[in-house]
Nucleic acid binder design. Structure first.
Lengths: 355, 355
DNA sequence: AGCATTTACTAAATCGCTTTACTTCCTCGC
DNA sequence: GCGAGGAAGTAAAGCGATTTAGTAAATGCT
């Protein structure tokens, strides 16, 4: 029962410190630091280096990041605060992108999910500030305007997939106009002239809604196709509204030969509508979605042509911006980045039946 | 009011330290620390406390976590290393659960996505160890056996949605047997006696595959239904194999009245097969999925009955285990937690047609 | 030989906090 | 009037690194 001095009592094992290493190697702590960090200036003999590394190995020494951080006042980390984890299937890509971006620059990423609660949001940022993160990515669930807590101003911050009208914040977000354009243009290029647009309702997602409409309009304009307001509908981003509105459009006297849907889920509804009306995709009707929610777009039959939102890239850019500002010792210069949303052609688009 | 010395030159603004606060408040640093941390023992007058807080406010003082960490040797953080972000739509839930669990216990979570690369994996854990995280969650993309890097042993670790045959690691993972049972049992309870099982192939996902089969078997057994090996098929976790195998089963001489599919995506394929064969769901054939991938299950028509994997809860449990071991000063006692996978009834199940 | 370099190191201050061990002044009981 | 005990603090020693300003010995050069 008495298992002696190194029993469970002692399990909270002390980590070896640099001093321990120095002693074992028979050198000063300074030397250890130089060797370990590969410092250029001072010269240390090959043999001493070897002794140091050997001691490191034997003691399983691992530098204490807190001490280092205190001394150098650099945390080599960024924060990621978001409410998207709660809601969006795209969250993963954004997070992955941001984390990869940070990792590539030797930073770690601390993530906090706020569930959208402003109190938690504030507290989360506060916590990150105490850890002296080099920057914070503030990501929201859908591209819209946000009002970040005041304390976000105390650190370089980039708004990801959202924006704020007050300035001082950088942002990285999708080019909705470009996305609307490329979807519409793909249909125009295929020969379509009557193109229905089932947009997402302007209420919650003004930016996306208005941007895509503008893109739609521009693409038509460029091809000298007259804009027909009757071909544009608004609805919620779900399959039911997709179904309903697609049905409305397809039963018009002069129905469109192609539909551009504001989300893949709406497109899913449109598929059902087309099927119910006995129309075949893509021969009777071309359909384009938006989001490239691969779980849907790739598994629908026929596979859905859509517009991809480059979430991974967006996350990566945000992180890169934060880390490199920090590294280069420049002041943080808040800029807006619009990233391209490109058309992904699959099987749901084809030229219209010859008329 | 010429802004002189505090111009852009000085932008790398020094954070106020506790000493600054002490000076401004006209007290010792010790006192500031006591006040700020609400230390019980020493008595400080109400007035002094007030002066301290006032100074804190005016200087926008924020404690330096690194210094605190160094002094107290507690990082109040855990690590989350994973490859799932790259691949799984469920990653979000697991991460959210883990983060919430950590947050509730005053910990932050550092996340690293390794992309499955063992070298990055090792480096990531190393980085976390240097930051003296109180524990690491090691999450994998699908419930299977893993061989975590050696250095994971140097910290309390829980394997999330995966397990290792070597011991020393805790794990939190789904109860596959229970899941298989509850799916099958729901069908049995509805009156089905011939229940097809389209399992996921045993190659990559042995645990899930074998566990669910056992659950299936037990449920049949409990209801005195004979096990018919011909009703069990294995395939990959996608819609194509779901389609193919469902078709095989439904065209048997004595076809099943219900299908239990190993994933929702396979169930999606089964839907198509049923439709192609002119069978109506759920009247002619009941279908149950697995995963509760809501994007699919809720939007399929009819909505898919399935078994939910409680990823959020799993993440939460993992984090809770790590944080509370640490808080309670107990030694970390690696345990295995199997969490329940419960049946979610929607519209794709009904009693069989009376025969 | 004599002086300047170069080589190979080391002592010690410092980063911003926590915490133990005092100190000083009151007040109170007798 | 005096000692005990409480109230309201403070001084200073670390925590584990980095980094500046040295030092001692060896070597190079004339």
């Amino acid at each position: 029962m008495m298992d002696g001095p190194r029993s469970s009592r002692e399990k909270r094992k002390r980590h070896a410190t640099m001093k321990d290493v120095a002693e074992l190697a028979g050198v000063s702590q300074t030397t250890v630091s130089f060797v370990i960090n590969h410092v250029e200036g001072p010269s240390i003999s090959e043999e001493t280096r070897h002794r140091v590394w050997e001691a490191v190995r034997r003691l399983r020494y691992r530098p204490n990041a807190a001490a280092k951080m205190l001394r150098t006042s650099s945390s080599r980390s960024i924060g990621f605060v978001t409410d998207v984890l709660a809601s969006s299937p795209f969250a993963g890509d954004m997070i992955r992108g941001a984390q990869d971006g940070a990792w590539d620059r030797g930073h770690l990423m601390i993530i906090v999910n706020t569930g959208g609660d402003p109190v938690i949001e504030r507290a989360a940022i506060e916590e990150l500030l105490e850890r002296r993160v080099n920057g914070v990515i503030y990501a929201s669930m859908a591209h819209h305007e946000v009002a970040p807590p005041e304390n976000l101003r105390e650190v370089p911050a980039v708004l990801l997939d959202c924006y704020s009208s007050e300035d001082g914040f950088a942002s990285v977000r999708p080019d909705e106009v470009g996305g609307g354009f490329s979807a519409t243009d793909a249909l125009v290029q295929a020969g379509h002239r009557r193109i229905g647009f089932i947009n997402i309702g302007p209420d919650q997602v003004k930016l996306a809604s208005e941007g895509r409409l503008e893109g739609y309009w521009r693409a038509l304009n460029q091809a000298d196709v007259a804009f027909d307001a009757n071909l544009v509908r608004n609805g919620n981003a779900n399959a039911d509204d997709g179904y309903r509105l697609a049905r409305e459009l397809l039963t018009l006297a002069d129905p469109p030969t192609a539909l551009f849907c504001g989300t893949d889920r709406m497109a899913m509804g449109a598929y059902d509508a087309a099927r119910d009306l006995g129309k075949c995709i893509p021969d009777d009707i071309s359909i384009v979605g938006f989001d490239d929610q691969r779980l849907l777009s790739m598994y629908l039959r026929p596979a859905l042509s859509t517009v991809a939102l480059p979430f991974y890239e967006m996350g990566r850019m945000a992180a890169a911006q934060l880390c490199s500002t920090h590294d280069s010792d420049e002041d943080f210069e808040p800029t807006d980045h619009l990233v391209e949303c490109s058309f992904v052609g699959r099987q749901s688009t084809a030229p219209p039946r010859q008329q």
